[in-house]
């Protein structure tokens, strides 16, 4: 009977602790009943093996004692988990962005992009991990949200948002521009800069050259996301969060670029925009480069403000959509 004992023991390992031994005794008794019925008091090992095969693998047999299945977070709790996960994710991203902005504009702290990225990479899994732990505990104690019997009116169903559809033209334009920039960055990095008039000397931009790796990564991320969106055809939870992440990366890079240009201009005695303009007439000794760099800084500054605003709006909409009707991607229009 040792094979039966081993089988019963193995089934027991996967059974609910609550009535494990009780089920094991019954299982053993039933197996011996069946065996005696077929093979009498002295069954051969082959007969035992055949019977156990009929019973099924221990894990499968044990699983059948869980009528609702085995879940880390079960179906009744999952919609609530998803809703809260979305809110937590948006809140963490928003808080990080706010801290970055406050640090830069108020405390005048220098932006450390790597630190900001690491901060995000740490805080998102930590926040989501805490949420998962809470839900695993709820699942363990079989807490069920009260959903049955809630009054429900079909008329209150939200309108289907057309804005969830991906704008193909916008995505194709984004991919094309991204590829062009990537090609320029990869094959002609020495040509990134500006000329004052057509055919005149090229002034290279040393700040952009400094961040080519980060910019390339950001472009690749953006192109990948656009391709995925074209393939999907609709905005979803994953793509919206990915878009927010892409924007946050862009904001970090734009911060760096603005900051880098300011530092460069300060070094060349033109920290303010008007200082650069004052040097406009004196264009014979390389000051055109100062003006060009100031123009670059302004362009990046405008892009930074627009991207920041766009991101804040996206996060706000994501949170609002979650609070309104669950974590439904269809309720938040794309940016």
């Amino acid at each position: 009977m040792s094979l039966i004992d081993r089988y019963v023991y193995e089934v027991g390992r996967h059974l609910p602790r609550k009535n494990r031994s009780d089920i094991q005794v019954e299982l053993r008794s039933s197996l011996i009943d069946a065996l005696e019925d077929r093979a009498g008091q002295e069954p051969t090992e082959a007969e035992v093996v055949e019977l156990l095969k009929e019973f099924g693998p221990p894990k499968t047999v044990a699983a059948s004692y869980y009528p609702e299945g085995q879940y880390l977070i079960g179906p009744p709790l999952y919609p609530l988990f998803r809703l809260l996960a979305g809110i937590v994710l948006a809140a963490v991203l928003g808080a990080q962005l706010l801290a970055l902005g406050v640090g830069y504009f108020i405390a005048q702290e220098p932006i450390a992009p790597l630190e900001a990225m690491v901060g995000l990479l740490n805080s998102i899994p930590a926040a989501l991990g805490m949420l998962v732990i809470v839900f695993v505990i709820l699942q363990w104690f079989e807490v069920r949200p009260e959903t049955e019997g809630e009054p429900w009116d079909p008329v209150s169903l939200p309108e289907i948002s057309e804005s969830a559809t991906v704008n193909r033209g916008e995505r194709i334009f984004g991919i094309t521009m991204g590829i062009i920039l990537l090609v320029v960055l990869s094959f002609f990095p020495e040509s990134i800069g500006f000329v004052t008039t057509f055919g005149s000397e090229l002034f290279t931009n040393p700040v952009i050259a400094q961040y080519i790796g980060l910019i390339t990564f950001s472009l690749l991320f953006g192109i990948g996301l656009d391709v995925y969106l074209l393939w999907q055809g609709r905005w979803g939870t994953f793509t919206r969060i990915a878009k927010i992440a892409a924007n946050l990366l862009s904001i970090t890079i734009l911060f760096l670029l603005v900051h880098g240009h300011s530092a460069w201009l300060a070094e060349h005695g033109a920290s303010g925009f008007f200082t650069a303009l004052e040097q406009l007439p004196d264009s014979t000794n390389g000051d055109w480069q100062v003006i060009g760099m100031a123009a670059f800084r302004m362009a990046f500054g405008v892009a930074l403000i627009i991207t920041s605003l766009e991101t804040v709006v996206m996060i706000f909409r994501l949170v609002r959509a979650n609070l309104k009707s669950g974590f439904s991607p269809e309720t938040m229009p794309p940016s």
Binding site: N19, I23, E26, L27, E54, G56, T60, S64, P67
Partner: peptide, 12 residues
């Protein structure tokens, strides 16, 4: 009826 089906059913 398979034994592996009946016993969990009885418990349920």
């Amino acid at each position: 009826i398979e034994q592996g089906t009946l016993y969990p059913l009885l418990r349920r």
